[in-house]
Write a protein that binds this DNA or RNA. Structure first.
Length: 493
RNA sequence: GCUCGUAUAGUGUAGUGGCCCAUCAUAAAGGACUCUCAUUCCUUUGACCCGGGUUCAAAUCCCGGUACGAGCACCA
């Protein structure tokens, strides 16, 4: 049987659960080229991370390339932010663990777009349309052609030159791709490829570009041409761009090109954040509602990084969600759970006392207590608390417990601010609370972003010399990241 | 209005006609370990949108409905 019908044996096998990313159609090892193309109108946000992680992971898996492309062709509606040109590649590298293989800036590639626009006009599958946006909208709905559609290519070139030399003004004309006004899908009918922008009034923020160009490509055209020029083999993007694929495929047919393989993901919301738009965040920051792009309340990559979310957790999170076209809403708990698994084994334990209450200790007791930096790793060393002055701090919420055990120290009975030593060994089920000795702590604050507010919790923290950026486990509170010697940012439970 | 897409436990996700009285994770609840409300481990709860059809056999294919989302921008 093995020889005659091996497939029958194979089919008996239990199907294994697929883990990780789904298969990529027509992917040849070493020849896969993917791209992620954000508008640099702000630094990367949580949602962008999906594009970086998914495309980057496929590039890595197939030993291919990831292009990071700045689609910065709009200077008025969503103008680029100059800092983003540097910040985005840094954030992309942080997220991926490797830098993008190529970086392409659309505003550096205008001559190419012009070249293909002219080719389109010369070959007769594009035309300069001088109808107003409103009147064309009516034509699109009515499935009727506009008069400009049947112009000779010489005349189109004439009008094109009027766009280039500024005889035409923004709004006067636009270059359209001839796809058909009778197409079933209204979104595809003779779509606009290039338009004019007033770059004197709204100069491009890159100073080498500034007011250099009047005519600018729109996304569908620029992206399509650039994907071709860069040899992109696979496009993975949001399903809101499905009609973009259809538009671009029609353009590719005109040029005689083959469109890349495409995959889409659905819309993602986070329970705690709702939707998020870069433009809106930019307005809010400029209005002073937030401290900056890395304000811990914001769903940006820089904020998450600053709060102590690891890139590894972000990668696992997005890969786990996969590339389904479902519109989903996920809780942050999922991301936090990944993060906990990554940091816990390494995070030193530290005591932070919120709203500290000072306690005088009476009775015979040890002068010094030693406890582990990490309960699962003795090799990580000890923490030492000196209580020779008989003074410790506990949290205010613990101070109303008449009987308690100071963790790793001893059982005590409380009366007001006095703690009577009972026993060093554990004698009953009294609650165990964390504490610090007055001799080994200093004033500190815990920054806790919650519900759109930033709570500043003052207290005392045990003395430590952890560097900024160290992830710690704050005993009985959660995980946090060291900001400086007297500041910890709360990361999550 | 036209066009397109999606629909599996609370939340995500696997599943492409028999292996599925449905996978894994997360969440919740309970428990073990533990001198943290941490980590680790164990247990439990819990789902194929609805209605037809095709087939010996459907979560999986087809049709209809419903719900949700997206596009129809001189934004990306």
């Amino acid at each position: 049987m093995e020889e005659e019908a091996p497939h029958l044996l194979e089919e008996r096998q239990k199907k294994e659960r697929r883990v990780g990313l789904p298969e990529l159609a027509n992917a040849e090892n070493g020849k896969v080229v993917l791209r992620f193309a954000p508008n640099p109108n702000g630094p990367l946000s949580f949602g962008h991370a999906r594009g970086i992680v998914i495309n980057g992971s496929y590039a890595k898996k197939f030993d291919g390339e990831l292009i990071l492309r700045f689609d910065d062709t709009d200077t008025s509606v969503k103008p680029p932010l100059i800092e983003a040109y540097q910040q985005i590649p840094e954030e992309a590298e942080w997220l991926l663990g490797f830098p993008p293989h190529r970086i392409v800036i659309a505003s550096d590639r205008m001559e190419h777009y012009y070249e293909y626009a002219e080719m389109m006009l010369e070959r007769g599958f594009g035309y300069v349309c001088t109808c107003s946006a409103e009147s064309f909208r009516e034509l699109r709905v009515a499935k009727s052609e506009c008069p400009c559609r049947n112009q000779e290519s010489e005349y189109n070139m004439e009008l094109w030159n009027k766009m280039l030399d500024g005889t035409f003004k923004p709004g006067d004309s636009v270059v359209r791709v001839k796809t058909g006004m009778d197409l079933k899908n209204p979104a595809l009918r003779d779509w606009p490829a290039l338009r004019m922008q007033d770059t004197v009034k709204n100069p491009h923020p890159r100073k080498e570009i500034g007011s250099k160009y009047r005519v600018w490509p729109l996304l569908d055209f620029q992206s399509a041409v650039e994907d071709y020029l860069q040899g992109v083999t696979h496009i993975i993007r949001g399903k809101d761009l499905m009609d973009s694929t259809r538009k671009q495929t029609l353009l590719y047919q005109h040029f005689g090109w083959n469109y890349p393989e495409t995959m889409y993901w659905g819309r993602v919301k986070v329970h705690e954040w709702g939707g998020f738009s870069t433009s809106q965040m930019r307005r809010d920051i400029e209005a002073g509602l937030f401290e900056g792009w890395d304000d811990p309340r914001l769903p940006t990559i820089s904020a998450l990084k600053k709060r102590g979310i690891t890139s590894e957790a972000l990668r696992q999170f997005w890969i786990e969600l996969g590339v389904t076209q479902k519109d989903i809403s996920v809780p942050l708990a999922t991301l936090y759970s990944h993060n906990t698994k990554i940091i816990d084994d390494d995070a030193p334990r530290i005591s932070f006392i919120r709203n500290p209450i000072k306690l005088q200790i009476s009775g015979e007791h040890p002068q010094e207590i030693t406890t582990l930096v990490h309960p699962n790793h003795e090799s990580r060393g000890n923490r030492i608390f000196d209580i020779s002055n008989h003074t410790v701090f506990i949290e205010e919420v613990d101070s109303n417990k008449p009987q308690l055990r100071l963790k790793e120290f001893a059982d005590f009975d409380l009366t007001n601010d006095n703690a009577e030593f009972v026993s060093q060994s554990r004698t009953d089920k009294r609650p165990i609370v964390h504490w610090v000795s007055e001799n080994d702590c200093h004033n500190a604050r815990l920054i806790h972003p919650i519900d759109g507010e930033i709570m500043m919790i003052s207290g005392v923290v045990e003395n430590h010399d952890y560097e900024a950026g160290t992830m710690v486990q704050i005993e009985r509170i959660g995980y946090g990241i060291i900001i400086d010697n007297s500041t910890i940012m709360f990361t999550h439970d």
